[in-house]
Amino acid sequence: MNVQITHKEPKRILNPTGGFLQGYTHSLNPYAGCVYACSYCYVRRMPIALFRKQEWGTWVDVKQGAADRLRAEMGAARRKGTVTIFMSSSTDPYQPVEVQAGITRALLEVLVEEKPDFLFVQTRSPLVTRDIDLFLRLKDRIRISMTIETDLETIRKRFTPAAPPIAARLRALRRIIEHGLPAQAALAPVLPFSEEFPKTLADIVDRVCVDDYFTGDGSGGRRTEKLGIRQRYKEVGLEEWYGPDVHQKVVERLRAAFADHQILLSQEGFLP
Rank of each mutant, 00 (worst) to 15 (best):
Y40A: 05
I229Q: 07
L264P: 14
V97A: 05
F135C: 06
S39A: 14
Q4F: 08
L238P: 05
Y31A: 08
K199P: 01
G23P: 07
A183M: 02
L201R: 02
P93T: 14
A49E: 02
E239D: 11
I148F: 08
L152C: 13
P198E: 07
K80L: 12
K80F: 00
K234D: 07
I13F: 01
Q4R: 12
I176W: 00
V35H: 01
E9W: 05
Y233Q: 07
V35S: 14
G18R: 09
E113G: 09
D140I: 06
R158H: 15
F135N: 13
N2L: 01
C38H: 01
M1L: 10
S125N: 10
F270R: 05
V99L: 03
D211I: 02
R71W: 03
A172K: 06
R223I: 00
A186V: 08
G220W: 04
T123M: 03
S39T: 14
Q22D: 15
R255S: 15
T91Y: 00
A168M: 09
W56G: 00
K8H: 07
Q267S: 12
Q267Y: 08
L21I: 09
P30D: 08
D206I: 03
M74I: 12
I204T: 08
A183K: 00
A257I: 11
I176R: 01
R230I: 02
A259D: 15
R44G: 06
F120H: 14
M46V: 09
D61H: 04
L152Q: 15
D140C: 03
K234W: 02
A77T: 14
Q184C: 09
L191M: 09
L119V: 13
H261G: 04
Y94T: 13
E239G: 04
F270L: 10
E149Q: 08
D203I: 02
F118Q: 05
E98A: 02
I132G: 07
Y31I: 11
T200L: 04
R156F: 04
L134Y: 04
R137Y: 04
K234Y: 09
E153N: 06
N2R: 10
G237W: 06
V128Y: 07
E153C: 12
L138V: 08
G23L: 04
K226F: 06
Q267W: 06
G18C: 11
L134N: 11
E268I: 12
P116D: 10
L138Y: 09
A37F: 10
L50K: 03
K80D: 14
F135G: 15
F193L: 04
D203G: 14
E55R: 06
E113M: 06
L108R: 10
R143F: 05
T224S: 13
S266E: 12
F159D: 11
F197S: 05
H179W: 01
E252A: 13
L265I: 15
A76Y: 02
D203T: 09
W59N: 12
I132H: 05
Q248F: 07
G19K: 03
I85H: 03
P96D: 04
D151I: 06
T17I: 10
G75Q: 14
A106G: 15
G57D: 15
L134D: 10
